[in-house]
């Protein structure tokens, strides 16, 4: 089997990966042992299928690897897909995992006196500068984004800005930092993403994988 015939599936590290494992299993993907070994330094893994390899990267990088064709398909939240808005990325399947919301939040004190219709400019701390700018531009507001890579909730508390755009699942982190949700930008769930050129040039192989994932998602729904 030559390297060129292999398909590469990019998976995100962390929380989503744990939720993805049952879906992978139902889709018939058994990763090699090192994949589950936290001590392993490997980044690329073989599977029980000789035509499929896995890579494990940061969730934002899944979209980039797949958009550039370095991986043929992957798992990424629609928050990441929307942030990059890569034209070469298809998101054909909702995996119904990793569900959360992307919201605008601010300290309670700010919300109490704020009148959003008067805004012409807001400063926002976020991991999603493009998505945030587009969201505010749609309502005629210019968003100045401060790009942070984590601990976004700290920003308003320390006076970096008054508002944040971040992912929320239960809302506990927001609450413990004195923040309240103002609005939901989008509901988020993990999607199977596919490189556009790969879907065209390897239509049969990738089409079969999309169908297997579809069946795996439906199987999970029945089990629940």
């Amino acid at each position: 089997m030559s390297q060129d015939d292999k398909l590469i599936l990019a998976l995100p590290k962390g929380r989503i990966l744990a939720e993805m494992m049952p879906i992978l299993q139902r889709a018939g993907i058994e990763p090699e042992a090192a994949f589950d070994d936290p001590k392993s330094r490997a980044l690329r893994f073989t599977t029980s299928d000789p035509r499929l390899d896995l890579i494990r990267v940061r969730s934002f990088d899944v979209a980039t690897f797949v958009a550039f064709g370095a991986a043929h398909f992957g798992v990424a939240g629609n928050d990441v897909v929307m942030e990059f808005d890569y034209p070469e990325l298809y998101a054909p399947l909702d995996l119904e995992a990793g569900k959360c919301r992307l919201v605008v939040a601010a300290p309670e004190a700010v919300v109490a006196v704020d009148n959003p219709s008067e805004w012409s400019h807001v400063r926002v701390a976020t991991k999603y500068p493009n998505l945030t700018q587009r969201h505010f531009a749609q309502r005629g507001v210019q968003a100045e984004c401060i790009k942070l890579n984590g601990a976004i909730e700290l920003a308003p508390m320390l006076g970096l800005c008054r508002r944040i755009v971040d992912l929320v699942s239960t809302g506990a982190t927001l609450k413990s930092n004195g923040l309240v949700e103002i609005e939901t930008i989008t509901e988020v769930s993990s999607r199977l993403v596919v490189n556009r050129a790969a879907l065209k040039t390897r239509a049969t192989a990738l089409g079969a994988w999309i169908e297997r994932f579809q069946a795996a998602v439906e199987g999970g729904r029945d089990a629940a």
């Binding site: 897909v81 298809y90 998101a91 399947l93 909702d94």
Partner: peptide
């Protein structure tokens, strides 16, 4: 449709 996003 451009993103083949069947969910959307």
């Amino acid at each position: 449709l451009d993103h083949k996003d069947s969910g959307a």
